[in-house]
Amino acid sequence: MPASPCSHVTLTPIGHIESDYPDKFGVPRQPGLADAARARLVLTAPFDDPLTVRGLEAFSHLWVTFLFHLSPERWTPLVRPPRLGGNARIGVFASRSTHRPNRLGQSLVELEGIDTDDAGVCLRLRSVDLVDGTPVLDIKPYLPWAESRPEARAGFAPEPPPRLPVRINRAAQATLDARPDADSLRALIQQVLAQDPRPAYRKGAEERVYGVRLRDVDVRFRALANTDDQGEGETLLEVVEIVVV
Rank of each mutant, 00 (worst) to 15 (best):
P2N: 14
P2C: 05
A3P: 06
A3N: 04
L11M: 12
S19W: 08
P22R: 03
V27D: 04
R29E: 09
Q30T: 02
P31N: 07
P31H: 13
L33R: 14
A34H: 01
F47C: 10
G55E: 15
L62E: 03
V64H: 00
V64R: 00
H69P: 01
L70F: 02
V79Q: 04
N87A: 10
A88W: 02
V92Y: 05
R100A: 06
L104E: 02
G105H: 02
Q106P: 00
L111D: 08
I114R: 01
I114N: 01
D118T: 12
G120F: 00
V131N: 09
I139R: 07
P144T: 11
W145C: 12
R149E: 15
A152N: 10
R163L: 08
V166N: 10
N169K: 05
L176S: 04
A178Y: 06
R179E: 12
S184Q: 15
S184K: 02
L185G: 07
R186A: 14
I189A: 10
A194D: 13
Y201F: 11
E206K: 11
E207D: 15
V209N: 01
V212H: 08
V212R: 01
V212W: 05
L214V: 09
R215H: 04
R222E: 15
N226S: 06
E232T: 13
E232I: 12
E238R: 11
